[in-house]
Design a protein around this nucleic acid. Sequence first.
DNA 1: ATCGAACCTCCAAT
DNA 2: AATTGGAGGTTCG
Length: 281
Amino acid sequence: MILSSKYPYALAETLYSGQAFRWHPILNGEAHEGILDGVRVRLSQKEDGIHFSSESGDSFDVGFIKKYLRLEDDLQLIYSQLSSDTYFTQAKDLYEGLHILRQDPWECLVTFICSANNNIPRIKSLVKGLSETCGERIRDQFGYFYSFPEPVSISEIGELGLRKIGLGFRAKYVAKVAESVVRDEIDLKSFRFLEYQEALTELLKFPGVGDKVANCVLLFSMDKLQAFPVDVWIKRVLRENYLNDSDEPIPDTKLRDWAQIHFGEFAGYANQYLFHQRRLI
DNA sequence: ATCGAACCTCCAAT
DNA sequence: AATTGGAGGTTCG
C-alpha cells in the first residue's frame, strides 16, 4: 500500500524524534517497524511515497495510518505561520517534512509518565518491558509481538509489578493512573474534543502528570498543536536564543505561556523542530 | 505562591 | 573497581 501526500514527509526524522518509543529500523534502516492498535506495521519511504504493509493488509485501515502520521497536516500553512521566527526557519530548512504524530492517548500518557527524569533508551526499554509483561502476545507472519497493554492489564500487575519492570518511582503513578482510568471509566480518546485548557486541567489531575508531560500528551495524541512541552532541551533553546543569559530562571509554565504567544496556534510544531535540532547538536 | 530536595534506575564518565 | 552525576519531571515539605 502506498500513502501519498501533498507535502514532504520526513519519515525517519518523525518516527525517531522522541515522540514515540516503539519504532525501530529494520532491513538495514530501509524500513521501520512499530505496533499500532495491536497490529505490527512496517513503513518505508520511497520515491513515490510512504509504503506501508501489515499482515492484515488492506483490512487494516489505511486511514488509520494516515491519521497516525498526520499526513493531512498543512505544512505549508504551518511553516508560513511560523516563518517570522528565524530559529524555527533554520530548523525547518534542516528537517523539512518532520511531522507531529497522532498517537493513542493512553499509550502516550503512560509513556510520558515513564519519561520523567529518564533518557530515551530507558524510556524505550520501559515501554518494551510494559508491553512484554502485560500486553497481549500476538502472532503474525514474522513471529510474536506485544500490543501496548490496556489500562486493566496494567492495573492488575500493580505498583509492585511495575517496579519489577524498572519503572522506579514512576510505578506508583502509572499504577494509580491505570486504576483511575479503569475505575472511573475515563475515556481518554474523548479528551481530543475538549479545549486545550480544559484538557490540560483534566490531565494535570493524574498523579505523575505535570505541565510538561500533559503538554506532550496533548500535542502527540490529542490534536492540540498549540501545546508546548517545556523540557530541558527546549529550555536550552529558549535560554540560548530568546532570553538574556544573565536573566534569572523563569518558571516552566511562564516559558510555555510566552512560547505559545510567540509561536501561536502551531507552537507545538515549533517546539518539535527546535527540540529536534537542539538535541542533535 | 515559590523553591529545592528527593525520588528509582541505569550507565557513562571519573 | 567503586563512586558520582545526569537523564525530555513531579511531588512534597
